[in-house]
Amino acid sequence: MATLELKNLHAEVAEEGGETILRGVDLEVSSGEIHALMGPNGSGKSTTAKIIAGHPAYEVTEGEVLIHLGADEFGEDFDIPEEKRTWDLLDLEPNERAALGVFLAFQYPAEIEGVTMVNFLRTALNAKLEEREELFEDEDEEAEAEAEATNEDAAGYESSPMEGPADEGEVGVAEFQELLAEKMEQLDMDERFAQRYLNAGFSGGEKKQNEVLQAAILEPSVAVLDEIDSGLDIDRLQDVSRGINALRDETGTGILQITHYQRILDYVEPDHVHIMLDGQVVKSGGPELAEQLEDEGYDWIREEAFEAA
């Protein structure tokens, strides 16, 4: 069980005189839940997503982004001590956040030439697991691990750079390929994807599918999906939706789904719907709220929020 908690989050663009974008966002997403975050363009949805993941372009001026982890969040063999169950993500690098179970599916995923999917995903998975060990080990262990890491570095790659180092990392090449094949099958992805370069030349839909695939491999505690439904045709929307539901049902991932449209919510039914306006969550409710938006737009919420203020 894990909970991502945003408390009174204020943020601006990280430059002198940067525009203020978030003005006190409160949100909580727990394992197994599906939340939809909706709102007009420029209301701060994507910024919220990026700040959760640690994007350097934004500066948090007030508030907290916390993750609360249950004792067995990372499996029964991985006991999380009492004092390490809550983390302030704002103190951590993006990769450390990933190690604590945070995942962001990008609206516009980067294209990385020359790096095969299989190499990238295995490297990422092992990096995440390694970082997690480091975050949770106590200080004596830390010194030991550092000495060990130095030795490993000196050894260098011993296998193909295409596949990455064979004997490095928790998940070996063979084991990983099996895992990857299984997850790709679930998403109805062609196995040739594994050898393609990361997002390079992918269609919009393939990129989105790939984001869900990455989440399936990395098994996050909480996944923020930034407009995963944009640019998808109906077949792919169904594949992607199936992937998201599987993530929730099989991994217990909590989902924060940012979207403009009701359409994906027909396939990925939210437990909670939140409406963002001008950098704040102004209204929360059940799935019926999304339907109401679809019919009536945002004006009534704007009025309601205005009256309340």
Partner: peptide, 12 residues
């Protein structure tokens, strides 16, 4: 690009 890879667990 760097941020994308970092968000997946790779350090800088």
């Amino acid at each position: 690009d760097v941020f994308y890879l970092q968000s997946r667990g790779l350090d800088d």
